[in-house]
Design a binder for these strands. Structure first.
Length: 305
DNA sequence: AAGACGAAAGTGGTTGA
DNA sequence: TCAACAACTTTCGTCTT
């Protein structure tokens, strides 16, 4: 039987998300993967004896991009048949082995190192496995296209992670990635853009709503305020206040306003720090929100009480 | 005294010629 | 390739609670 968990054991958050496609339950607050690889284990065939089993089973070990050779590696043999060969044939095998070694080591050695780094950063940021896998895939493609040349391995790793986060709608800010990887924020942004452009990865502009739960829990705001913030965001979107603006700034401002309305006041400074923007940006967005959405009265009333 | 507000100058990235 | 431009940041002074 499946046991349904309602709260995140790590942070107590209640924003658990079931992603059926990826087979995961993720806490949207802290990113903890509560349940993963929830694969449907049922078979579409049945086997009644070993003969049928041999015919119908058709899978080997799982393939993964987080292993440098995807867990599929083969080598040109070093033992066995090769020593039964004579002269020319034997030399041919030695040559093959040498070339395989030469070709593979350059890329693979890089991948080995990079994937280790990738794992480290991913676990530091508590990213779900699916994101790690995705970023490993992106990085592997980048290496194969020779996009890492001239760039530091770490920055490409960070860029790949950032891209994967965005794709899976568990956005992390550039600042967070910068802190986790020790790479300059600008550098990550640069490689991120470069890699996604070269690989033709299309990524939607990140949605401010995706940031809300995480910021809200970091600020210890209750669920009511949180949904209020989302509500405000939706209105903002209708009034076209969101286009062209930094998503974190908008998310931060809506949270700030929502907190005011619900009498859970946080200072602009606090919100700004969590969201990784400045007070000024929050103020600007905040001003726009008040103006366009006529929230002014609501706040005044609450303050009077 | 701390927080909120606003103005002005600076920064990095995008865009259009 | 370069300049104009929008968004955002930094800094600093003033006002409010």
């Amino acid at each position: 039987m499946v046991k349904y968990i309602k709260k995140c054991p790590e942070c107590g958050g209640i924003n658990l998300i079931l992603n059926k496609e990826k087979g995961e339950i993720i806490c949207k607050d802290c990113g903890l993967v509560i349940e993963e690889k929830m694969i449907d284990f049922s078979q579409e065939w049945r086997e009644f004896d070993s003969d049928q089993a041999a015919k119908r089973r058709r899978v080997g070990a799982p393939m993964t991009y987080t292993k440098y050779d995807r867990g599929l590696g083969t080598d040109v043999g070093q033992r066995g048949d090769i020593f039964q060969l004579k002269g020319k044939e034997r030399n041919k095998f030695f040559r093959l082995r040498k070339w395989q070694y030469r070709i593979s080591t350059a890329i693979e050695r890089n991948l080995k190192l990079a994937l280790a780094e990738l794992k480290r950063v991913a676990s530091y940021l508590k990213l779900p496995k699916s994101v790690e896998e995705e970023s490993a895939r992106i990085y592997t493609m980048a290496v194969q296209r020779g996009l890492v040349r001239g760039r530091s391995m770490e920055s490409v790793v960070a860029g790949a992670l950032y891209a994967a986060c965005r794709r899976h709608e568990v956005p992390r800010t550039l600042d967070e990635l910068s802190e986790a990887s020790g790479i300059d924020k600008k550098e990550i942004g640069r490689t991120y853009r470069f890699v996604t452009r070269e690989l033709g990865i299309r990524i939607l502009p990140s949605n401010p709503v995706d940031y809300i739960p995480r910021f809200a829990s970091a600020l210890k705001l209750n669920a009511e305020t949180q949904s209020k913030a989302v509500e405000i965001l939706e209105q903002a979107e209708e009034n076209e206040l969101t286009s062209g603006r930094g998503p974190t700034g908008i998310a931060a401002a809506s949270l700030y306003v929502a907190a005011l309305i619900n009498n859970e006041k946080r200072t602009q400074r606090e919100v700004a720090d969590i969201a990784g923007v400045t007070e000024v940006t929050i103020r600007n967005r905040y001003k726009e929100l008040l103006k366009k959405l006529n929230l002014k009265d609501k706040i005044k009333k609450k303050v009077k009480k």
